[in-house]
Amino acid sequence: MQSTLGVGFLGSGPVTQAIHLPTLARLTDHFTVRHLNDVDAGVAAAVAQPAGTAYSTSLDALLGDPLVDVVAICSPHGFHAEQVIAACRSGKKAVLCEKPLAMSADEAAAIATASAETGVPVLVGSMHVYDPGWRAAVAHWGDLPATCHTIRSSVVLPPNARFEDLATEVTSRPAFPAMDLSDVGIRAGLVHAGVMGLAVHDLPLIRTLLPRYGDLRVISATLLTPFGYRILMVAGGKFVELHAVMSQTWQPRWVLEAYADDQVLHTEFTPSYVHAGSAVSTLTTAETAQVFGPRETNGYEAEWLELAAVVRGEVSPPDLDGLVDDLRFTVAVADAAAEAVRSADRTEAAA
């Protein structure tokens, strides 16, 4: 009988190679990688060989592997929902799905139903949610969710490849296609993709600071080049700014801030793919400045350790309704931002 939890990966691309495999290599008391799956047999074989694991190209092969207790879903976003549901139905002990959980609220609700019916817990790989530096700030922020009026997420990063190559030797990296940015449909699609792929890291955190988001209104949304976005919106009576740009910067920065009249939260996260310590959060008032972090455990390790604790019955699984609401909020922002890009183009054309 296995003393550790066997892990199988659906999707063996850069996220698996540069984030999860190095993370699990530090958590061998809890996990053993057992199976790597990818639609590209060459990629699956190349990644599996140094890891010493089985590999396959079919979903059924991985789900049928008796050594796999936990399924980690790192495939393209559009496949997440069907694969999470299939993993739940296969009777595994848990599922970890990379963000976003799904691409629509209906898909997320179907996942919640499958998880509830099978009893298989589902966790979303939102490393910022699990980051010890963030969680410490949440535990000490008092009435900040009620009193804050302005929230800002600012991300300035180099291309992922720079950090991927520092973490591991990546096998088969997909090329970013050339696009005609004069086409408003492409610009709107890129902003939508930016929310679903990048802002999604912080939107669950932002949602905890909002009393509601049913009144969400995007004031403006702009595509930044070479890739990024600037989105200004109002939700729950609060002003929210989402800013991100990926360039050749030598100084990466990822900051989430919340401002009230008498308190400010400033959380600085390590960039994605960086295997460093936790975020550093600072809660500042006129009298004090409380600093939380950095802790040795980062968000990636924390999410996997939480999964192990859930499987072993040491902590409760994440609230399914909360996960669905996180996804619903993210999709609402993405859809509204894309429409704001199209609306601005129509206004400009009519002027």
Rank of each mutant, 00 (worst) to 15 (best):
L144V: 08
L123K: 02
L205Y: 03
L209R: 01
A199E: 10
G6K: 07
F163W: 12
T171P: 00
A302D: 05
S316G: 06
H266C: 09
F163I: 01
G133M: 05
L305T: 10
P226K: 04
A309D: 14
T285H: 06
E117G: 09
A25K: 06
A116S: 15
A338H: 02
V170A: 13
G293Q: 06
F329W: 08
A139E: 14
P204K: 08
D215G: 04
A175V: 15
F269P: 01
V156A: 05
L283D: 04
K93L: 15
A102E: 10
H20N: 08
L123M: 12
H275G: 04
M127I: 11
P145I: 05
H35R: 14
V129P: 00
Q17S: 03
P177Q: 10
R152G: 02
T225E: 15
L166Q: 15
I111L: 10
V311M: 04
A289R: 13
L283C: 05
R230M: 02
E296P: 00
A349S: 13
P14K: 00
A351S: 12
M196E: 12
H80N: 13
V291N: 01
A340L: 03
P271Q: 05
T32G: 09
Y229S: 07
W134N: 06
F176T: 14
C88L: 04
L62Y: 01
V122S: 01
V138G: 01
P317Y: 07
H20Q: 09
P14M: 05
D29N: 13
W134K: 04
R187E: 11
Q49R: 14
F227Y: 08
H35N: 03
Q49K: 14
G277T: 06
A351K: 07
T57Q: 07
D143H: 04
A46D: 13
Y273R: 04
H35C: 01
V122T: 13
P50A: 10
T118W: 12
T284D: 01
P50C: 06
